[in-house]
Amino acid sequence: MASTSANVRLAGFFDDLVRCETRLYNAVGECLRAEHGIHTAQFELLRYVRGHPGARVVEVATNFAAGVGAISKGVDRLEARGWVARHPNPADGRSSLISLTRAGATLVAAAERTFHDTLAALVVPVVGAEQIAETAAALATLRRALEDDRAGLPVG
């Protein structure tokens, strides 16, 4: 069993990680909303679809560790705004494939500049490039392990 001081450090790591994520997510969201009229979740979904054309809802849900129903509703909202389109999946008639529309591609490209500028303004002055690289590597390793173990998947 881990020592008490190790438990305190691990709990502090969890607290800092979650609170930083929440604050960064909210700050990025404020800028995306003000400049592009979209929420962070919409931006993330658009960015994912841009990088994974023809993705299925279940693949998007797996990537974001979110429920299929929630992702499907999010795709519905993006489709209603003309930013994505669903196409029949020739390999599986029960699912559809998602792609960006021209308007969605234009929006995500513009929003990505805001995303990067906002992150740079919030993170770079506080955390040096070396720390960013080290932290990114550690988080990528942790994320892969959690995904490989299928830890933290939504129920239902």
Score class of each variant (00 low, 15 high):
79 E>H: 02
143 R>N: 14
15 D>L: 12
149 D>N: 12
152 G>K: 11
55 A>W: 06
62 T>Y: 10
151 A>E: 11
38 I>Q: 06
29 G>C: 04
116 H>I: 12
68 V>F: 02
53 P>R: 03
133 A>P: 05
15 D>A: 12
90 P>S: 02
148 D>W: 02
47 R>M: 10
22 T>W: 04
14 F>D: 00
30 E>T: 07
149 D>V: 04
21 E>N: 09
23 R>S: 07
114 T>E: 05
155 V>H: 11
39 H>T: 15
135 T>V: 15
66 A>N: 08
31 C>R: 14
153 L>F: 14
31 C>H: 10
13 F>E: 00
121 A>V: 03
136 A>W: 13
128 G>P: 10
55 A>V: 10
89 N>L: 02
19 R>W: 00
108 V>C: 03
109 A>H: 03
138 A>F: 13
28 V>H: 02
39 H>F: 10
101 T>C: 02
54 G>W: 09
4 T>F: 00
71 I>Q: 08
69 G>L: 09
121 A>K: 12
49 V>F: 08
105 A>C: 04
116 H>M: 11
107 L>D: 05
41 A>K: 08
116 H>W: 10
41 A>C: 05
14 F>M: 05
20 C>W: 02
142 L>R: 15
72 S>V: 01
8 V>T: 03
8 V>N: 00
143 R>A: 14
23 R>A: 08
55 A>S: 15
120 A>P: 01
17 L>F: 04
30 E>D: 13
94 R>M: 08
43 F>H: 09
53 P>W: 07
122 L>M: 15
139 L>S: 13
55 A>N: 04
99 S>A: 10
28 V>S: 01
135 T>Q: 06
9 R>P: 00
104 G>K: 01
120 A>G: 12
147 E>I: 07
35 E>T: 09
61 A>W: 05
12 G>K: 00
40 T>P: 01
119 L>H: 07
133 A>F: 10
15 D>N: 07
84 V>I: 14
138 A>I: 14
156 G>S: 09
63 N>A: 15
145 A>S: 15
7 N>A: 05
138 A>P: 05
45 L>G: 05
88 P>F: 06
152 G>S: 10
147 E>K: 11
52 H>R: 12
123 V>A: 09
102 R>S: 09
30 E>S: 11
111 A>Y: 03
132 I>F: 13
147 E>Q: 10
74 G>A: 12
105 A>E: 14
